Computed example of a mutant assay.
Amino acid sequence: MRYTRAMKFAAIADIHGNSLALEAVLADIRNQGISEIVNLGDFFSSPLDAEGTAELLRGIDAVSIRGNHDRWLIEQAPEEMGKSDRIAHDQLGSDTLDWIRELPATLIWRDEIFLCHGTPEDDNTYWLEQVTQDGRVRSAALKDIEARAQGIEQKLILCAHTHLPRTVALADGRLIVNPGSVGCPAYIDIEPAPHKVQAGNPNACYAILEQQGEDWSVTHRHVPYDHLEMSRIAMERGSPSWAEGLATGWISNETFAAIAGR
């Protein structure tokens, strides 16, 4: 049975332990008169405030799926983790890690919306963007985006992972929406080739989705908060790329070269 009542809800993703950004987003959601939230994963991993983020999440009744970093927090031994995962892991209690273990990787919510973190098959693959061999990040071709959506019947598809707010319309009218990142507007990754992803502003991002008949409207929200305080914490914990991304929404070529070896 399809869920027939018109829906309006908020989608958040990629908080990455940024409790101040999450606090600002949750306040903005309340100010919009919205009570329902879906959370698309990567809640904690960062040099920031994993436990503070967990406390905020315990206070809301969000529908949640796990992301790649959440999976690594429960699949890897602490000594095998990357720096951001290890810092978060050391802050979190066993109850929070057990909560992650119970979360699905994908979910169909109320028959109307398909939720995933990266793609339906892989939480660590970009869906709406692709990385070239020389490390440029660009929009994926529509045919490749649509190929990953085969078999999904829902008209609204939500994904995350790249931290870039986007809405893409498929040829058959379905929408794929990435709400952007609540807490990490720019980052460096080395797979599949060294690259940087940059939102271009330091604000906390999320999306509002509202059903209008058979269609969906999408509003991307950019919420200011004390991003310089979180940047300061990242620098104190020896993470200059995090500090730079949080402060500006960009990663400089110098920082990228120092970390990615280019």
Rank of each mutant, 00 (worst) to 15 (best):
R2V: 15
K8F: 06
A11H: 01
A13P: 01
D14W: 05
I15F: 00
G17Y: 05
E23S: 14
A24H: 01
A24F: 01
L26E: 00
R30G: 12
R30S: 12
I34G: 03
I34H: 10
N39Q: 08
L40M: 05
D42S: 04
F44L: 11
G52Q: 02
A54F: 10
E55N: 13
R58V: 08
A62I: 03
S64F: 05
R66G: 03
G67Y: 00
D70L: 13
R71M: 11
R71I: 11
W72G: 09
E80Y: 11
M81K: 00
R86I: 08
R86T: 07
A88D: 10
A88P: 03
D90Y: 12
Q91D: 08
Q91C: 08
S94C: 10
W99F: 08
P104L: 04
W109K: 03
R110E: 02
R110P: 00
D111K: 06
H117D: 05
T119V: 09
T119G: 06
T119A: 08
E121C: 07
E121S: 13
D122F: 10
N124K: 10
W127C: 04
L128K: 01
L128E: 05
A140N: 15
L142M: 15
I145W: 05
E146K: 03
A147M: 13
R148S: 11
Q150K: 10
I152T: 02
E153D: 09
L156K: 01
L158H: 00
H163A: 05
T167W: 11
V168D: 07
G173V: 10
G173A: 12
L175R: 01
L175C: 05
V177C: 06
N178W: 02
G180C: 02
S181I: 01
G183K: 02
I188R: 11
P194D: 05
V197Y: 09
Q198N: 13
A199I: 09
G200W: 01
G200S: 06
N201T: 10
A204P: 01
C205V: 03
Y206P: 01
L209R: 06
E210M: 09
E210L: 11
Q211M: 06
Q212S: 13
E214N: 14
R221F: 12
R221A: 14
H227V: 02
L228F: 14
M230P: 07
S231M: 06
I233A: 07
S239Q: 12
E244R: 03
I251P: 02
S252P: 07
N253Q: 12
T255P: 01
A258T: 08
I259P: 05
G261R: 14
G261Y: 13
